[in-house]
Amino acid sequence: MNTDGRHGGVNVIEAHGLRKDFTVRVRKGLLRRERRDVAAVDGVDLAVQRGELLGYLGPNGAGKSTTLKMLTGVLHPSGGRVSVCGLTPVPQRILLARRIGVVFGQRSQLWWDLPLRDSYELLRHIYRVPAAEHAARLRRCRDLLELDPFLDTPVRQLSLGQRMRGELTAALLHGPEVLFLDEPTIGLDVVSKQAVRGFLAELGQTGDTTIVLTTHDLADIERLCRRIVVIDHGRVVHDGGIDALHARYGSQRRVTVDFDTAPAALPDLPGVHLEATTGPRLTFTLDNSASVGTLISTLTTLGSLRDLSVTEPEIEEVIARLYRSEGRAPSPRFP
């Protein structure tokens, strides 16, 4: 019986009804303070298979970081069941720590006053990684994340982008099966972001490492994740592909064509709507069912095309719609 999640088919991460209540003290009058439970995570179900690259999204305060802290053994859940790599995070924290890698956004796990290289050496001993294995992984990260220029610089002197690349490396040197990243691209410039994304994309492609990623930068998601889980007020409000999200919110692709001269007739295809006409330029919106190919071949019969562009629906837009529609629901947090 295999339950340790090392082999395919078994979920590497499993959560059922996972919840976390924080007790906060609210001031009532001069001296009286009332205790009140706030549900930061309110019954999350999650199943992630080995090798998946999961985007974990939600507006500020939705409970993303809190979920990740429970999955990594930092926080004790208030309720529900959770298992990661077949282990229960808090009671089996030390066993689990060897098998996962974690980057918490602006938190650091590097030694501030020592050269970056020294942190890696210390982590090698902490995780008891054989020297050769460690060296091979470090070499790969050095190449892909271009660490060499600052490997001997004390961490406190690194820029945010340099440090974040350093943190990612630190989380990977023991060869974790699951990588948890809480806003790994926060505050990075375009080039650093691309470096990090490219690196994660490559890591995800090998299929050995399961990655759970939270971010507010939807370009990260578009580039990296086939599946996204969106939570709001501590509850899962979407779990599936980005396509499914577009379908659900009726996102539309757009086709813009420039004719040499305005065509006499218009295509009449199901699911295709003319949005605008400005001289020889026509803009169509397409429902999910409609095919761009059919539209284009129909258009070529109507006149000679000079230019043509297809715009995919904006992920920003659909996510914003999702957040807004969930936000209108009465808040379940203060029952």
Partner: peptide, 9 residues
């Protein structure tokens, strides 16, 4: 938090 994610006491 950093200390809690490492395999030591």
């Amino acid at each position: 938090d950093a200390v809690l994610i490492r395999p030591l006491g």
